[in-house]
Computed example of a mutant assay.
Amino acid sequence: MKQNIGIINSMVRITAGLSMLTFLTIRSARRKDASVHPMMIVIAAMKVAEGIVRYCPLTAAFEEMTEETDGKEEGWQQNFQKTQM
């Protein structure tokens, strides 16, 4: 597993994740009828974990999708130029 986010990005993720976890925990503890969904707590914890290990699976999937495999760039500009000729 190769690290794919920088140090600043990881610090932001840790800070945001801990802030979200704190807010959600306090909100659910104070009000019994609070609509804090457990999935929101899992997402906040995932952000903290991503910051600690400096690996984001969504970033890795996006980078893999946009990676060129044949060496040729195939963007919309090339398709646009072909249609005008």
Rank of each mutant, 00 (worst) to 15 (best):
L58K: 01
A29V: 10
E73L: 09
K72G: 02
A60P: 03
V53K: 12
I5E: 05
T15Q: 01
H37L: 14
R31E: 13
A16N: 11
E68L: 08
A49G: 11
D33V: 04
G51S: 07
F23D: 06
R31M: 11
G51A: 04
N9C: 12
E50W: 00
R54V: 01
K72T: 02
I7S: 12
M11D: 00
N9Q: 15
K2Y: 08
A44N: 08
V12C: 03
E50N: 11
I8D: 06
M39A: 13
F80R: 09
E74G: 09
N9K: 10
M65R: 02
D33S: 15
Q81S: 08
T83G: 13
V36E: 10
L58P: 00
R30H: 07
V53I: 13
A61F: 05
K2S: 15
A60W: 00
M11S: 09
A45K: 01
G51C: 05
C56M: 02
V48C: 03
E73G: 06
M39Q: 07
Q84A: 12
Q77Y: 14
T15W: 03
S28H: 09
R31T: 08
E64N: 04
Q77R: 03
R31N: 15
R30F: 10
G6R: 00
M11L: 15
D33N: 15
D70I: 01
G17K: 03
L58H: 03
I41R: 04
E64P: 01
K32H: 09
V12Y: 06
Q84F: 10
I7V: 10
R54C: 13
V42H: 07
R54K: 15
N79S: 11
E74I: 07
F80C: 07
R31P: 04
I43R: 03
I26Q: 04
D33A: 15
P57H: 08
Y55M: 06
A16R: 04
L24N: 05
D70C: 03
W76E: 07
F23V: 14
I8R: 07
G6T: 07
S10I: 02
F23T: 13
N4K: 05
M65G: 05
R31K: 13
Q84C: 08
M85Y: 01
M65C: 06
L24S: 05
E64M: 02
S10P: 02
I41T: 09
Q78S: 13
M46G: 14
M46S: 15
Q3N: 12
S19Y: 06
G75R: 02
Q77F: 09
P38E: 05
V36P: 13
E63M: 05
I7A: 09
V53N: 10
Q84T: 00
V48W: 02
F23H: 11
G75Q: 00
M20W: 04
